[in-house]
Design a protein around this nucleic acid. Sequence first.
DNA 1: CTGTAATCTTTATGA
DNA 2: TCATAAAGATTACAG
Lengths: 241, 241
Amino acid sequence: MALNNLLQIILDNRERKLIDIFSKKKDKILLQTKQLDVADIIITNEIAIERKTGFDFVVSIMDNRLFEQLLRLKDTYSTPILIIEGLNDEVFDNTGMKISSIYGALAYVSYKLGISVIPTRNINDTAIVIERIAIREQIKDKGPIISRKAPKGLSIEERMSFILEGLYDTGPKKAIQLIYNFKTPYNVLKAIKHSFVIYTKTGNPKGIEGPLSKIKGFGHNYLDRNKELIFGIKKVNKEIL
Amino acid sequence: MALNNLLQIILDNRERKLIDIFSKKKDKILLQTKQLDVADIIITNEIAIERKTGFDFVVSIMDNRLFEQLLRLKDTYSTPILIIEGLNDEVFDNTGMKISSIYGALAYVSYKLGISVIPTRNINDTAIVIERIAIREQIKDKGPIISRKAPKGLSIEERMSFILEGLYDTGPKKAIQLIYNFKTPYNVLKAIKHSFVIYTKTGNPKGIEGPLSKIKGFGHNYLDRNKELIFGIKKVNKEIL
DNA sequence: CTGTAATCTTTATGA
DNA sequence: TCATAAAGATTACAG
């Protein structure tokens, strides 16, 4: 598609500044703008770039947007790239986030999520990086990309756990325990249905009985709250069901 | 107790400054120094880190040492990491290398070579990154557990919807529709269980029948994918259940 | 993401 | 054996 030796770059139409910069290079770059869902810049079918300023990066950590965005990027493109622009003292000092948290997130994205992180100083540098990548992929030897560690879309088990994390008092740990013990989300709900609180003679909750009682870490409170959530009833006696 | 929570970090004995920094944390970190051949810092058998100041980085590009080093790192450890420290104006202005060349090399290392690049401002930040990686690999859960936190202050209906948003192709809209029609999450799963795909004589999916067919927007794809997710079975024929 | 507070389950203890 | 208190583990929340 690339006529002559024109570089083809697709930009999200909200990236005004980048559009301006590349517009001035019409002799080199064939610019295309559209509303993009999962990335900010697309170089090829395989390579897409998310651009974040240092400030954006930190803010998106706090509201949990970062992880979600990057996972989608990773799901959609085999070579996802994050350009992080101007991660400087100003960002570290003024966002109120702990330094260790920022670097923890950065390290996580880079080596655990397997997303290629490229730091730049400012938007002009960002434009340079984008152009270099486009040149390499579209003009130079399109040498193979050395594969990273196993591409990690959500497995079905992870996805199953994901559902259960909607329950009260249920984080990743408990969710995984439940799937491990009962195999499927539906079985988990059935297990909850068939478990009951045991009371002492004086009427105090003593523990639980039923399928759920075989796993540690699930008590009467867990049962009560989640039965209401799943079945829409406040209290359940064995006799009623 | 304390002994078990010690982080173990192996440093090349030429990394004097890092050794100094970590030496002051003897209560947390078990430091080991030795002459290392292919990395500067070793976290586990799989994870090793090359540390380069911005200046070193540029110089090693020029004398062709960079790629040789990093390729060896990559050959030896399955998760190679490059910490690039203080890649700032001073480096870009005073090394005499073209900006685009520096970024070209950086991009190449990151997305083409598949080495995890993590930028830091200075050696103290570098130490933080190393410590975070060690914590994640040596203390926290091995497999990265993904979690989704429910927004706080949800009503029970909202919370019910949130559970269903763990299903495939189910966002807020479909989740609310489902709760509105079936009242509780458990009923929704039962409705999915008792809904089935209808096929044409030629074996093509035609639509669905059962409780779910009464609502618009839920087709055979939705049914197939989510039955697998909820019940752990790839395909369900009416006859089997 | 991290670090801390809050919450829940389990174990220990005394009546 | 039951009821309360302390300990241990996990989740929720704020930055």
